[in-house]
Amino acid sequence: MQDFYRMDGKVALVIGGSTGIGAKTAQLLAHRGAKVVVAGLGQSDIDKTVSEIEAEGGTALGVLVDLADESAVADCVQRTVDTFGALHALHANAAATGKEALANDVVLADMDFAAWDYVMTINLRGLALAAKYSIPPMIKAGGGSIVFSGSGRGRQGHLEYTAYGVSKSGVEGLSRYVATQYGKDGIRSNVLEIGLIMTDAVRGNVPEQLRDLFLQHHLTREFGRPEDVASAAAFLLSDEARFITGVTLPVDGGMGSHASVYADQRRMMSDLATMGA
């Protein structure tokens, strides 16, 4: 049986690929044979990820890109094609998750819309630009696959990170439009609805008490790792997923699959069992 998980002969662009989920995706794609462009902010992080890929025998190129700058996004895609001759896969993974962006992302009535605009520029407009400039060379290459990084916050209402959540709702809509408009050109587009993953950004920005609260609502016994999301992204980018497009795949430990009272009900049942004993 043919191993479709292999990516030999493929060229992949991972935007937001220098750290966390993106870095693990870039490393996995390279391990499976793809030539990978690691794009993001922070030259030292990009260089580190590229070096790790090359140390394992993979092929990678690092590119600085600011998703707020349309010309920089276009140049990133063009450099990918100029260097490796084609483009077959895009993981559009970048998001505004810095401390300042998250600190200013408050409830709507208190929102400074400069902060709102910044989040939308990176999380939604930036990913749309990445797709816009990637689609033509993918069509030229005979087809391709796009995976957008979404979030459970795009599906459910929350008490904080308003702009982030709304932007991720937009990403799901964006992916469906890409899948619909370019499916007959050989382009597939899907979204990973990502839950709370133990990245450095989460450890640095999400209080431990809140992390513990989320874990109570997971159906798994532990938090997800960046490698877990990378595996899902690599699958959707591979030919193994050739008949999957226009969908949103939760990678959230079951967080979004159950009734909202799940954790409270478990505590109540535990308390009753203790009383009965």
Score class of each variant (00 low, 15 high):
Met255Phe: 15
Gly253Ser: 07
Arg221Cys: 03
Arg242Thr: 04
Ser270Cys: 01
Phe243Tyr: 15
Leu236Gly: 10
Gly224Asp: 04
Ala259Leu: 13
Glu222Tyr: 11
Gly224Ile: 02
Arg221Pro: 02
Asp264Pro: 00
Ala241Trp: 03
Gly256Ser: 15
Val229Gly: 12
Gly253Ala: 11
Phe235Pro: 09
Tyr262Val: 03
Gly224Met: 03
Thr245Ile: 05
Val251Cys: 15
Glu227Met: 03
Asp271Trp: 01
Glu222Ile: 04
Val247Ser: 10
Arg225Ile: 01
Val261Ala: 06
Gly256Trp: 07
Gly256Tyr: 06
Ala230Phe: 11
Ser270Asp: 09
Pro226Glu: 13
Ala241Cys: 07
Leu236Trp: 13
Glu227Lys: 03
Pro226His: 13
Arg242Trp: 04
Ser231Glu: 15
Ser231Ala: 15
Gly246Leu: 08
Thr248Gly: 11
Arg221Phe: 05
Arg221Thr: 09
Pro250Asp: 14
Phe243Cys: 04
Phe223Thr: 12
His258Trp: 01
Leu236Tyr: 12
Gln265Ile: 01
Arg225Gln: 15
Val251Met: 14
His258Glu: 04
Gly256Arg: 01
Ile244Phe: 06
Ser260Asn: 04
Glu222Gln: 14
Leu237Arg: 08
Asp264Arg: 05
Ala232His: 10
Val229Ala: 10
Ala241Gly: 10
Val251Tyr: 14
Arg266Asp: 00
Thr248Cys: 13
Asp271Arg: 09
Met269Asn: 00
Gln265Ser: 02
Asp239Val: 02
Ser260Tyr: 07
Gly256Asp: 13
Thr245Arg: 05
Gly246Cys: 07
Ala230Val: 13
Pro226Leu: 11
Val247Gly: 05
Thr245Ser: 15
Glu240Tyr: 06
Asp228Met: 12
Ala263Phe: 01
Ile244Ala: 06
Met268Arg: 04
Arg267Val: 01
Ser257Gln: 14
Ala241Leu: 06
Phe235Gly: 08
Asp228Phe: 09
Val261Lys: 00
Thr245Phe: 06
Ala232Glu: 12
Thr248Asn: 11
Ala234Ser: 15
Gly254Cys: 10
Ile244Ser: 08
Ala233Gln: 07
Asp228Thr: 07
Ala232Cys: 14
Thr248Gln: 11
Met255Ile: 12
Met255His: 10
Ser257Cys: 13
Leu237Met: 08
Met255Cys: 04
Glu222Pro: 01
Leu249Phe: 11
Ala259His: 14
His258Leu: 05
Val247Gln: 13
Arg225Asp: 11
Met269Glu: 00
Arg221Gln: 07
Thr248Met: 10
Leu236Lys: 07
Met255Ala: 14
